[in-house]
Protein backbone atom coordinates (compact mmCIF):
# COMPACT_ATOMS: atom_id res chain seq x y z
CA UNK A 1 0.00 0.00 0.00
CA UNK A 2 1.46 3.34 -0.93
CA UNK A 3 1.44 6.38 1.39
CA UNK A 4 -1.13 8.08 -0.84
CA UNK A 5 -3.77 5.46 0.03
CA UNK A 6 -3.52 5.85 3.82
CA UNK A 7 -6.23 8.21 5.03
CA UNK A 8 -4.98 11.21 6.95
CA UNK A 9 -6.27 14.06 9.00
CA UNK A 10 -4.47 17.36 9.17
CA UNK A 11 -3.56 17.93 12.81
CA UNK A 12 -2.04 21.32 13.62
CA UNK A 13 -0.98 21.66 10.00
CA UNK A 14 0.64 18.22 9.68
CA UNK A 15 -0.79 15.09 8.06
CA UNK A 16 -1.57 12.36 10.60
CA UNK A 17 -2.50 8.90 9.29
CA UNK A 18 -5.30 6.89 10.88
CA UNK A 19 -7.05 3.60 10.45
CA UNK A 20 -10.73 3.28 9.87
CA UNK A 21 -12.72 3.51 13.09
CA UNK A 22 -10.06 5.36 15.05
CA UNK A 23 -10.88 8.51 16.94
CA UNK A 24 -8.91 11.71 16.46
CA UNK A 25 -7.41 11.09 19.90
CA UNK A 26 -6.27 7.60 18.89
CA UNK A 27 -4.76 8.86 15.65
CA UNK A 28 -2.93 11.66 17.45
CA UNK A 29 -1.66 9.27 20.12
CA UNK A 30 -0.36 6.86 17.46
CA UNK A 31 1.49 9.75 15.86
CA UNK A 32 2.97 10.90 19.17
CA UNK A 33 0.97 14.11 19.33
CA UNK A 34 -0.38 14.91 22.79
CA UNK A 35 -3.95 16.17 23.07
CA UNK A 36 -4.72 17.12 26.70
CA UNK A 37 -7.31 14.86 28.34
CA UNK A 38 -8.45 13.56 31.71
CA UNK A 39 -11.31 11.07 31.30
CA UNK A 40 -9.67 9.20 28.42
CA UNK A 41 -7.39 6.17 28.75
CA UNK A 42 -6.45 3.85 25.90
CA UNK A 43 -7.23 0.73 27.96
CA UNK A 44 -10.91 1.54 28.52
CA UNK A 45 -13.76 2.71 26.33
CA UNK A 46 -13.98 6.45 25.66
CA UNK A 47 -16.36 8.52 27.74
CA UNK A 48 -16.27 12.03 26.33
CA UNK A 49 -17.26 13.61 29.62
CA UNK A 50 -14.42 15.85 30.74
CA UNK A 51 -14.26 17.67 27.38
CA UNK A 52 -10.63 18.64 28.02
CA UNK A 53 -9.64 16.89 24.78
CA UNK A 54 -11.67 19.30 22.68
CA UNK A 55 -10.21 20.22 19.32
CA UNK A 56 -11.47 22.20 16.35
CA UNK A 57 -12.56 19.87 13.56
CA UNK A 58 -13.20 21.76 10.35
CA UNK A 59 -13.98 24.78 12.50
CA UNK A 60 -16.30 23.06 15.00
CA UNK A 61 -15.35 22.27 18.59
CA UNK A 62 -15.53 18.53 19.33
CA UNK A 63 -14.20 16.08 21.91
CA UNK A 64 -11.39 14.25 20.14
CA UNK A 65 -11.74 11.06 22.15
CA UNK A 66 -15.21 10.35 20.74
CA UNK A 67 -14.93 11.99 17.34
CA UNK A 68 -13.96 9.62 14.53
CA UNK A 69 -11.05 10.63 12.36
CA UNK A 70 -12.20 11.37 8.84
CA UNK A 71 -10.16 11.71 5.69
CA UNK A 72 -9.09 15.29 5.10
CA UNK A 73 -10.45 16.67 8.36
CA UNK A 74 -8.61 19.80 9.47
CA UNK A 75 -7.98 19.53 13.20
CA UNK A 76 -6.56 22.20 15.49
CA UNK A 77 -5.67 21.17 19.04
CA UNK A 78 -3.41 23.98 20.22
CA UNK A 79 -4.95 27.20 18.88
CA UNK A 80 -5.59 30.02 21.37
CA UNK A 81 -9.36 29.52 21.31
CA UNK A 82 -9.10 25.84 22.23
CA UNK A 83 -6.48 26.44 24.92
CA UNK A 84 -8.67 29.12 26.46
CA UNK A 85 -11.69 26.81 26.46
CA UNK A 86 -9.59 24.04 28.01
CA UNK A 87 -8.39 26.38 30.71
CA UNK A 88 -11.96 27.26 31.59
CA UNK A 89 -12.82 23.55 31.81
CA UNK A 90 -9.87 22.92 34.13
CA UNK A 91 -10.86 25.93 36.23
CA UNK A 92 -14.39 24.54 36.54
CA UNK A 93 -13.00 21.21 37.73
CA UNK A 94 -10.92 23.01 40.36
CA UNK A 95 -13.82 25.03 41.77
CA UNK A 96 -16.21 22.09 41.67
CA UNK A 97 -14.10 20.02 44.09
CA UNK A 98 -11.77 20.75 46.98
CA UNK A 99 -8.24 20.52 45.67
CA UNK A 100 -5.63 21.13 48.37
CA UNK A 101 -2.52 20.72 46.26
CA UNK A 102 0.01 21.70 48.98
CA UNK A 103 -0.64 18.59 51.04
CA UNK A 104 -1.89 16.21 48.35
CA UNK A 105 0.15 13.07 47.82
CA UNK A 106 -0.37 13.37 44.08
CA UNK A 107 0.90 16.93 43.84
CA UNK A 108 3.52 17.00 41.11
CA UNK A 109 2.10 13.78 39.71
CA UNK A 110 -1.51 14.92 39.26
CA UNK A 111 -2.74 15.26 35.70
CA UNK A 112 -5.30 17.92 36.61
CA UNK A 113 -2.63 20.03 38.28
CA UNK A 114 -0.20 19.41 35.42
CA UNK A 115 -2.76 20.56 32.87
CA UNK A 116 -3.44 23.67 34.93
CA UNK A 117 0.25 24.50 34.79
CA UNK A 118 0.46 23.67 31.10
CA UNK A 119 -2.49 25.94 30.33
CA UNK A 120 -0.98 28.73 32.43
CA UNK A 121 -3.91 28.74 34.84
CA UNK A 122 -3.12 31.46 37.36
CA UNK A 123 -6.47 31.55 39.17
CA UNK A 124 -9.70 29.61 39.30
CA UNK A 125 -11.73 32.36 37.57
CA UNK A 126 -15.05 30.99 38.91
CA UNK A 127 -16.30 31.07 42.49
CA UNK A 128 -15.44 27.96 44.48
CA UNK A 129 -18.31 25.60 45.27
CA UNK A 130 -16.64 24.36 48.49
CA UNK A 131 -18.72 21.16 48.37
CA UNK A 132 -19.05 19.01 51.46
CA UNK A 133 -17.75 15.65 50.28
CA UNK A 134 -17.15 12.64 52.52
CA UNK A 135 -13.83 10.83 52.57
CA UNK A 136 -13.99 7.01 52.74
CA UNK A 137 -11.05 5.50 54.64
CA UNK A 138 -12.79 2.24 55.59
CA UNK A 139 -10.74 0.04 53.25
CA UNK A 140 -7.60 -1.36 54.90
CA UNK A 141 -5.40 -0.54 51.90
CA UNK A 142 -7.11 2.25 49.96
CA UNK A 143 -8.64 5.67 50.60
CA UNK A 144 -11.31 7.33 48.49
CA UNK A 145 -10.96 11.10 48.79
CA UNK A 146 -13.97 12.58 47.03
CA UNK A 147 -12.64 16.12 47.52
CA UNK A 148 -10.15 15.36 44.75
CA UNK A 149 -12.47 13.34 42.50
CA UNK A 150 -13.33 14.92 39.13
CA UNK A 151 -15.98 12.28 38.28
CA UNK A 152 -14.04 11.23 35.19
CA UNK A 153 -15.37 7.67 35.50
CA UNK A 154 -12.00 6.11 34.59
CA UNK A 155 -11.89 3.95 37.73
CA UNK A 156 -15.51 2.91 37.20
CA UNK A 157 -14.79 1.77 33.63
CA UNK A 158 -11.49 0.12 34.61
CA UNK A 159 -13.16 -1.83 37.39
CA UNK A 160 -15.89 -3.04 35.04
CA UNK A 161 -13.95 -3.54 31.82
CA UNK A 162 -10.52 -4.68 33.07
CA UNK A 163 -10.97 -5.91 36.65
CA UNK A 164 -14.39 -7.42 35.89
CA UNK A 165 -15.69 -6.27 39.28
CA UNK A 166 -17.89 -3.20 38.97
CA UNK A 167 -16.60 -2.18 42.38
CA UNK A 168 -17.31 1.49 41.77
CA UNK A 169 -19.97 3.66 40.19
CA UNK A 170 -20.98 7.27 39.83
CA UNK A 171 -24.04 8.09 41.92
CA UNK A 172 -26.21 11.18 42.26
CA UNK A 173 -27.03 13.72 39.58
CA UNK A 174 -25.76 17.12 38.54
CA UNK A 175 -23.75 18.82 41.24
CA UNK A 176 -24.42 15.89 43.55
CA UNK A 177 -22.67 13.41 41.26
CA UNK A 178 -20.10 11.46 43.25
CA UNK A 179 -17.95 8.38 43.10
CA UNK A 180 -19.36 5.61 45.26
CA UNK A 181 -18.57 2.09 46.29
CA UNK A 182 -20.92 -0.06 44.26
CA UNK A 183 -22.26 -2.16 47.13
CA UNK A 184 -25.08 -2.15 49.61
CA UNK A 185 -23.16 -0.49 52.45
CA UNK A 186 -21.69 2.11 50.12
CA UNK A 187 -18.36 1.68 51.89
CA UNK A 188 -15.12 1.08 50.04
CA UNK A 189 -14.18 -1.83 52.31
CA UNK A 190 -17.21 -3.77 51.02
CA UNK A 191 -16.76 -2.89 47.33
CA UNK A 192 -14.35 -5.68 46.46
CA UNK A 193 -11.70 -3.27 45.14
CA UNK A 194 -8.11 -4.35 45.79
CA UNK A 195 -4.76 -2.57 45.62
CA UNK A 196 -3.61 -4.34 42.47
CA UNK A 197 -6.79 -3.55 40.51
CA UNK A 198 -6.51 -1.41 37.41
CA UNK A 199 -9.16 0.82 38.94
CA UNK A 200 -6.62 1.78 41.60
CA UNK A 201 -3.99 2.75 39.06
CA UNK A 202 -5.86 4.82 36.53
CA UNK A 203 -7.02 7.85 38.53
CA UNK A 204 -5.72 11.07 36.94
CA UNK A 205 -5.88 12.89 40.29
CA UNK A 206 -5.59 11.61 43.87
CA UNK A 207 -9.10 10.38 44.53
CA UNK A 208 -8.09 6.73 44.95
CA UNK A 209 -4.82 6.27 46.76
CA UNK A 210 -3.06 3.42 48.53
CA UNK A 211 -2.62 3.65 52.29
CA UNK A 212 1.10 3.03 52.02
CA UNK A 213 4.02 4.45 50.05
CA UNK A 214 3.30 8.05 51.01
CA UNK A 215 5.07 10.94 49.32
CA UNK A 216 7.75 8.76 47.71
CA UNK A 217 9.51 11.69 46.05
CA UNK A 218 10.63 15.10 47.14
CA UNK A 219 9.61 18.24 45.34
CA UNK A 220 11.64 18.60 42.17
CA UNK A 221 11.79 14.88 41.46
CA UNK A 222 8.13 14.18 40.72
CA UNK A 223 6.84 13.47 37.23
CA UNK A 224 5.63 16.92 36.29
CA UNK A 225 8.33 18.79 38.20
CA UNK A 226 10.72 17.74 35.47
CA UNK A 227 8.72 18.22 32.31
CA UNK A 228 5.25 19.47 31.40
CA UNK A 229 2.41 17.06 30.74
CA UNK A 230 2.45 18.07 27.06
CA UNK A 231 5.83 16.32 26.85
CA UNK A 232 5.39 13.50 29.35
CA UNK A 233 1.75 12.63 28.72
CA UNK A 234 -0.76 11.30 31.23
CA UNK A 235 1.54 9.10 33.28
CA UNK A 236 0.83 7.42 36.60
CA UNK A 237 3.71 7.38 39.12
CA UNK A 238 3.92 3.57 39.10
CA UNK A 239 4.47 3.62 35.33
CA UNK A 240 6.99 6.43 35.35
CA UNK A 241 10.68 5.76 34.82
CA UNK A 242 12.98 7.85 36.99
CA UNK A 243 14.69 9.86 34.26
CA UNK A 244 11.88 9.74 31.75
CA UNK A 245 11.31 13.13 30.22
CA UNK A 246 9.36 12.11 27.17
CA UNK A 247 7.39 8.97 27.55
CA UNK A 248 4.63 7.23 25.70
CA UNK A 249 1.83 9.72 25.23
CA UNK A 250 -1.33 8.21 26.65
Amino acid sequence: MSDQTIPCIELNGKPIPFQAGESIMQAATQAGVYIPHLCHHPDVSPHGSCRVCIVKVNGRVKASCITPAEEGAVVESECDEIRQLRKRLIQMLFVEGNHFCPSCEMSGQCQLQALAYDLNMLDTHFDHFYPNRAIDCTHPDIILDRDRCINCDLCVRASAQIDNKQALSLGGRGQQTHLQANCESGLLKDSGIESQDKAMHICPVGALLPKNNHYPQITGERIYDKAPISEVGNVRPENHQGDQTKGPIS
Partner: peptide, 14 residues
Protein backbone atom coordinates in the same frame (compact mmCIF):
# COMPACT_ATOMS: atom_id res chain seq x y z
CA UNK B 1 18.64 19.50 49.69
CA UNK B 2 16.65 17.24 52.00
CA UNK B 3 13.05 18.16 51.18
CA UNK B 4 13.24 19.57 47.67
CA UNK B 5 12.16 23.11 48.60
CA UNK B 6 13.41 25.85 50.88
CA UNK B 7 9.90 26.28 52.25
CA UNK B 8 7.19 23.61 52.56
CA UNK B 9 9.03 20.63 51.11
CA UNK B 10 8.44 16.90 51.54
CA UNK B 11 10.56 14.85 53.92
CA UNK B 12 8.99 13.07 56.92
CA UNK B 13 6.83 10.02 56.29
CA UNK B 14 5.45 7.59 58.89
Amino acid sequence: AISGKKVHGIAAIP
